[in-house]
Amino acid sequence: MRMDKKIRMKARKVEFFYGTTQILHGIDLDIFENNVTAIIGPSGCGKSTFIRLLNRMHELVPSARLKGEITLDGKSITSADVDPVEIRRKVGMVFQKPNPFPKSIFENVAYGLEVNGVKDRHFIEDRVVSSLKKAALWQEVEKRLHDSALSLSGGQQQRLCIARCLAIEPEVILFDEPCASLDPISTHKVEELILELKKDYTIVIVTHNMQQAARVSDHTGFFYMGKLVEFGRTEDMFTRPREKRTEDYITGRFG
């Protein structure tokens, strides 16, 4: 049963501020192992802000301030003595807009290994191939590994970013609206990939697309104005939402 899954990440009483503006209010949320957890909600509800906390990308904004605690396997990732670089190796991230580096396809996938000190060329080559295969991109790029990553289509670029993330073997992967700039066919490919990846990884996905959340996720959290309005199993949430606001949002009455 899905409900028996282990909890990998936990957010407890998370409050988040940019300067004096409070963005998130008292978020409690569990992320289950080998599950896809979808975060939905209207623009500006804090959902992207929330997943950026899960690998401490929020720290790039100097005025960011976090209260409460987030844990990975029971250990805090948010306390000051934890190195964010360490966390980001375990919790990978794929961004809204594909952002391959202006380097070759091969170099893009090898990048994470190289910055993490892997020197063995054979190991790197094997890992690049296996990551591209896992990201369902291998067949398309097999013969052009040393071409620029920017010569790929948008959908291919996004799968390359996924491969790049897989190469460092994270435990959790965060997807921040990964299909927002993709066409329907590419979106479909990425969704299939996410379903495939959850066998090996724990996944969190922020999405604007209700159908996407319904198709790929096991759990869904609905954010509204910086609060987690409702969290539960996706099928329950989409068939029998407990909260009126969740129902209104899901059925398209606002947002």
């Binding site: 670089v85 980001r88 961004f95 952002n99 910055v115 460092i168």
Partner: peptide
């Protein structure tokens, strides 16, 4: 672009590595 810095950091690069590479 900021996205190059973010992409590098999200892969476990240190700030200096992101700047350097």
């Amino acid at each position: 672009p900021r996205s190059y810095r973010e992409g590098a950091l999200a892969l476990g690069a240190t700030k200096w590595q992101a700047i350097r590479y």
